[in-house]
């Protein structure tokens, strides 16, 4: 049986791990490779590394880091942050990443999704969607959740799928950083209208939140950052809890 995936997410700035609460507050949480290795040992199923560096030098450091991660890590990993072209992706995949995640650049130029899918295959294109409620409707946000657009989240999810996205990484801005649980209703509806895997993100605060998102929203994977980084929900205990509730995990 295909297992539900648990994915720790590491935010990277200038080659170091940082942690984001509502994408704004930043705290240094260590060496990415060491942290990644620790997660592999704990039983993480995949890893995501998001580069939040703004400078050219920082981008170069990130590509070097990806190479280092690929040498050390024996599970699949996704990289994202600031990717806007086929050549950006070429560099990161050549460095050893398995998948890339695109966000603002795909909203700005949706054809990027098709370009990447054609060039590298659907399985390595993850479209990240930051969703926030504006006047009662779920809208797509860009630029790390700072900029609201008038794009409907559900329409965008379907378009991303049609253009060749292999997975959707959906973060609710309403839930992110709250530790109050995932956006079950949003995720459930997205799962119903798409037929590609959905990775739930934003709001994880306890093992029960993961149980809920797998049982109620039926997503394929769940991603979290700070609760893993600070050991609030250790992955082995989380997996035991999921197993106890009959959710298939590795």
């Amino acid at each position: 049986m295909l297992k539900k995936r648990i994915i720790p997410c590491l935010d990277i700035k200038d080659g170091r791990t940082v942690k984001g609460v509502n994408f704004v507050d930043i705290r240094d949480a260590g060496d990415p490779v060491e942290l990644a290795k620790a997660y592999v040992e704990q039983g993480a199923d995949e890893l995501v590394f998001l580069d939040i560096t703004a400078t050219v030098e920082g981008r170069k450091t990130f590509a070097e880091l990806v190479e280092h991660i690929a040498e050390e890590i024996n599970i699949p990993f996704t990289v994202g942050g600031g990717i806007s072209s086929v050549s950006d992706v070429d560099i990161l995949l050549a460095a050893g990443a398995d998948k890339v995640s695109i966000n603002s650049s795909a909203v700005r130029r949706p054809v990027l999704i098709s370009e990447l899918a054609n060039e590298f295959g659907n399985q390595c294109v993850v479209v990240a969607i930051d969703a926030g409620i504006v006047e009662g409707n779920w809208r797509v946000f860009t630029h790390g959740g700072r900029t609201a657009t008038d794009i409907d989240v559900f329409a965008w999810a379907k378009e991303a799928e049609h253009r060749g996205a292999g997975e959707l990484l959906v973060t609710s801005m309403q839930h992110d950083g709250t530790k109050g649980g995932f956006a079950i209703e949003l995720l459930k509806e997205l799962d119903a209208i798409t037929s590609i895997p959905i990775i739930a993100s934003g709001g994880a605060g306890s093992a029960q939140h993961f149980v809920d998102v797998f049982q109620k929203a039926r997503v394929d994977a769940a991603l979290a950052a700070s609760i893993f980084h600070f050991g609030e929900v250790p992955i082995p205990e989380l997996k035991n809890e999921l197993r106890t509730k009959g959710i298939p995990v590795r």
Partner: peptide, 12 residues
């Protein structure tokens, strides 16, 4: 059909 293709992830 209803199930996602590709088959992607951990399976026994």
């Amino acid at each position: 059909g209803k199930v996602n293709v590709p088959h992607m992830g951990w399976n026994n």
